[in-house]
Design a protein around this nucleic acid. Structure first.
Lengths: 341, 341
DNA sequence: CAGAATACTGCAAACGATTGCTGCACTAGA
DNA sequence: TCTAGTGCAGCAATCGTTTGCAGTATTCTG
């Protein structure tokens, strides 16, 4: 099957009609303008010839590329692949393709990719790179490029976003720990500049109060990044501080992994000495030593929903901003147990 | 930052020349055809106006998009994200962008994405989806679309590919096990239709012979896929069979993880009862219970090299096919020990 | 100084699709 | 029977670039 590019003209010729007619017959939107009989004739011809419309040509005329720009911080972070799959699978069902790039949380890099993609006429963006105060996103909103944020959001209420209820995630974690009997609970927060870090932090504090515990300043530390290394560093600081604790809620799973590292290093046992709860439920956590108790978030679905939002926005450009809030779920595994065992 | 699409016509008008001339002036390749003075005039005009060429229009005419299609089986498989990052990082340095899609090892899906990308005028492909006998790839080669394979290759010698020396990987694994004292070594091979599965299988057999062991038919089983689930299923069959063994070399890490699962299930201990060696060194293996001994392959570098190959091919389209072979490396962790302990 | 080569630059046809407009044939209404 | 209306299909312009060809002025050659 050699790929001799079949054009609309070929289809039209075979069906014995003009290209204009063929175009209308092939497009469901305009099909009603042509005689049903000719329409089927054209469609059959297209089928026979294996016609695939050329999106470039179409895009030239319609100013659409049927292409979406997807920006993630780092594909290598296990959180993102499932999100990206959700996006691409959904995009594929409607004939769109994704352009993908990594920002490494670097604003310059991000802007560069953003501009490049824009010049490539992407129809919209899905960004997993949001920081709470994010000039790029503001710019895009005023420039009227459809944008949907995923996983993280911004402060501005003008953005479309699909995120997990991070406040609730923290609530689930703290409640679990509290019910096990823990009262001295520490929190290694993610960076405050990300909505996820901030919301989980607030969820932590609020829930501590709600269950009647006093959040202890010395037991709350912010990690500089959502990484294993920074998690380890921060956990060490926590250990060096004067506060005592029997459990920690980590800002995400990678931070929790960092905690694992220093516990192994220092000979502490998990969960006997310290219980740990992560957040996100990235893959393979169930095979860790010990299996990590964590909060499961619907990665794939976030991707799907974000894509749907993009598609809707493309349909009706003036829709009101929405932020979709998805439900997290507690997954109890082996890294938590009652204190003092 | 408003969206005033500046076209070539605008530039030409401002510079007081014809669009054709402007086009030539702006393109370094053809700039020599126009008077240097007019050229600078045009370039200044373009600069003033903030002209950004429309790649869509350009692509329609030139059949180039400065875009590369990347096909992977499943982004969610931890093996691929680092490869993809290697690709995208390298592409970004030369102003290219990647289009990404997942095939799930489904030939129809793959073909669909392939065609879609082709109609989007991607300049070349990087495929991580190769099967040993792969009609799509053959077609592409004859259709003269630049293609580079990564991680897996095909039988045909006409393809460009960047892979790890999988035969050598198996050699490293078996030798390690042999040196620990194992003599009854099993192999759960990957599917034979992938070059990785086949090469590792041959590496296994050859090395067994080389060290003086007889490869035992009953101790070699092929898994139906490179997944945890299929790995588990196959390991169960191995257990049900009559052959005895003290160690297994798994076709890849996911298969090894499947072995872990059934060992936990059946109360077997690793490595005391059975030693396991994986392959690929996907992330977080060091945190498993027990940490998995495996063969490390240069994921990121594979992506980089594949991209370089693509770029070279784009420069000189008639270059001779090359296959770059990268070196694997043994990483000893906790899933292997001398037999009978 | 004639004729030819050279150096630019403009013209216009592509590329493959979409779409407003026109025109034809036929039907319905008066 | 005539006119208005309707349903359908063709025509051709258009999207923003690139590029072969042609034309004109300038310079070179002998």
């Amino acid at each position: 099957m050699t790929t001799a590019p079949v054009t609309l003209k070929d289809v039209a010729r075979r069906a014995g009609v003009h290209t204009g007619t063929a175009s209308r017959a092939l497009n469901p939107q305009t099909r009603s303008l042509v005689n049903p009989e000719t329409a089927t004739k054209v469609m059959r011809a297209a089928d026979d010839l294996g016609y695939r419309p050329n999106p470039i040509a179409r895009g030239l005329k319609t100013n659409r590329s049927f292409t979406i720009g997807v920006l993630v911080p780092d594909l290598t972070n296990p959180l993102f692949p499932p999100i990206v799959r959700g996006i691409e699978d959904t995009l594929a069902t409607v004939g769109y393709t994704a352009l993908l790039a990594n920002s490494d949380n670097d604003p310059d890099k991000e802007r560069l990719h953003f501009e490049t993609m824009r010049s490539r006429q992407v129809d919209a963006f899905i960004l997993a790179t949001a920081q709470r105060d994010h000039p790029l996103i503001e710019d895009a909103i005023v420039a009227d490029v459809p944008i949907v944020l995923v996983n993280r959001t911004v402060e501005s209420t003008r953005a479309f976003a699909v995120i997990t209820d991070d406040h609730r995630s923290a609530e689930l974690a703290v409640t679990h720990l509290f019910e096990l009997g823990h009262t001295k609970i520490a929190h290694i927060a993610g960076p405050e500049r990300f909505s996820t870090g901030k919301a989980r932090y607030h969820g932590f504090v609020d829930t501590m109060k709600k269950v009647g515990l006093k959040p202890d300043r010395t037991l709350i530390r912010a990690s500089r990044a959502f990484t294993e290394r920074e998690g380890a560093t921060t956990f060490r600081k926590l250990l060096d501080g004067k506060g005592e604790f029997t459990a920690v809620f980590a800002g995400n799973d990678l931070i929790a992994l960092g905690c694992y590292d220093v516990m192994t290093e220092t000979g502490m046992r998990c969960p006997e000495d310290v219980s740990i709860v992560g957040c996100n439920d990235i893959p393979f956590l169930d095979k860790l030593r010990p299996p990590l108790t964590t909060i499961k978030i619907p990665h794939y679905e976030m991707g799907v929903r974000a894509t749907q939002l993009v598609l809707e926005q493309l349909q009706s450009p003036s829709a009101e901003p929405v932020t979709v809030l998805l439900e997290p779920e507690l997954v109890v595994r082996g890294s938590t147990c009652p204190p003092g065992r």
